[in-house]
C-alpha cells in the first residue's frame, strides 16, 4: 500500500484523524485518551494490520513529553508513525500498549526509566536500567540536571 492509500484508509477508519507525512512515514497523531483504542484498531483492522512495533521511543520536544510508535505490517508491508504526547510534566500518564504488542513491555519500562512517563495498566512498571532506589530524576528529559557528570557546552 502506498502512503497515499494508507492515508485514505486511516481517514476512513479514524475520521478526523490528524495525519501528516514526514519524508518517510505517514504520521498519525492521537490524543492520550484515544491511544489504546487507536493502537488496538491499528493492529486489529485486517486492512491495516500493524502487527510489528519495530521501534518505540520516548521524546521530549518543545516542553511536551511524548512517545513515538513505529509500526509495520508484516504481511501488507506498510509503515506508520504513531505519535502521542502530553504536556503534563509533573505526572505524565499514558496507556500501555503492551497487551497489543508484547515488545512494548520492556520499551515502556525503558521510557519510564528515562522520561518518567508512567504507563497505565502496565504489568511491571519499574525502572529498566537505572537504580530503582537511588536514582533521582529522568535523564533523557531536557530539564534533567546533573552537575557532576554532564558538562554543559556553549
Amino acid at each position: 500500500m502506498t502512503n497515499e492509500q494508507l492515508k485514505e484508509k486511516l481517514l476512513q477508519v479514524f475520521p478526523g484523524a490528524v495525519i501528516s507525512e514526514t519524508t518517510q512515514y505517514v504520521t498519525l497523531t492521537v490524543e492520550p485518551d484515544k491511544l489504546h483504542e487507536t493502537a488496538a484498531a491499528l493492529k486489529g483492522n485486517p486492512e491495516l494490520h500493524f502487527d510489528y512495533l519495530f521501534c518505540q521511543s520516548g521524546t521530549d520536544v518543545k516542553e511536551a513529553l511524548g512517545v513515538s510508535y513505529f509500526l509495520e505490517s508484516t504481511d501488507l508491508r506498510h509503515h506508520l508513525l504513531l505519535k502521542v504526547s502530553t504536556t503534563n510534566r509533573e505526572n505524565p500518564v499514558l496507556d500501555t500498549v503492551c497487551d497489543i504488542w508484547e515488545t512494548a513491555n520492556f520499551n515502556e519500562r525503558e521510557i519510564f526509566d528515562m522520561f518518567g512517563i508512567t504507563f497505565k495498566n502496565h504489568p511491571d512498571m519499574r525502572r529498566m536500567f537505572l537504580d530503582e532506589e537511588d536514582w533521582v530524576g529522568y535523564p533523557l528529559r531536557k530539564d534533567y540536571v546533573d552537575e557532576v557528570n554532564i558538562i554543559e557546552r556553549n
Partner: peptide, 23 residues
Amino acid sequence: GVYVISSGEKYPVRVKLRSPNFS
C-alpha cells in the same frame, strides 16, 4: 534502527537507538 529528531542545529534533539538485542 536510528531515530533522530533534529531541530536544524548541529546537535540532534533526540537520538533513539533501536537495538535488536533489547527486544
